[in-house]
Amino acid sequence: MSDTVLSVRDLRVVFETRRGTLTAIDGVSFDIARGEILGVVGESGAGKSVTGSAVIGLIDPPGRIAGGEIRLRGERIDNLTPEKMRRVRGRRIGMIFQDPLTSLDPLYRVGEQIVETIRTHTDLSAKAARARAIDLLTEVGIPAPERRIDGYPHEFSGGMRQRVVIALALAAEPELIIADEPTTALDVSVQAQVITLLKRLCRERGTAVMLVTHDMGVIAEAADRVAVMYSGRVAEIGPVESVVRAPHHPYARGLMGAIPTLSDTAERLTQIPGAMPRLTAIPPGCAFNPRCPNVFGRCRAERPEPLPVDRTRVACHLYDERGEAA
């Protein structure tokens, strides 16, 4: 597909520790097309943030990419030198993190930070870069940008700061944006504003977005496709309507039932017993097997590969016609 912006194949990320090698990401594959928002959900420890960090080449030692490929518009970026990767980051891949205050330097005016980013990645003059920074601030909905551009980060409210960070991520017109929990630190009314903004910018500019979050509600509203991660693996990936309304993987089903919604009438929430295994103790076979209500012999021995089921891909032996219990 020529429209594919990001293609991740069989990604493996490991952390070398004194107690041995921990596999944080194990065989993760997905694509993101132009103008598409891929939501990556999972509970803490599922490996969703590590996946995002791997794509932008920000995995710090002792962690490293131990296998697989990451391609940006067909070009491999997982084996670039740090210097080359630095040029890809910011220029071709923008980043938005959870806490906007840590992404902004408190000692520099907001405008200086945006101008610096623009001038690092393009050959605009200082004056043109400033005009462009004002345009960006206007675009992300900051009122009176001509005046606000000279403010310091602490003079902005939480929601406005996250808008500045989005402007910063867009500064070099990247093809891909990695947004890691961009709305988690914000209040709901502001969260709604930021989601709407992200969706609009992605549509208008055709930017591909990888939206990493634990909030299924945010995913349901913003994403086109969803990948549900569990223990460093993709349990199910597919269009948002299918995964949210009719999930196939037992974990995805449990997860959707566990979330209280504004419309459900259920007296009890679906309960998945136990918790996600630690990286030191991932069970053999399917990582979900000790918690799975549909577990059978094969699940404990053999790891399921993602296979197409309806419109999604599901890594579960239940959907494999060769499986005994399918």
Binding site: A192, E241, R245, T261, L262, S263
Partner: peptide, 12 residues
């Protein structure tokens, strides 16, 4: 404002 599972792809 609450993002909800029931509102897939809601524009608002």
């Amino acid at each position: 404002a609450v993002p909800d599972l029931a509102h897939i792809g809601r524009a608002r």
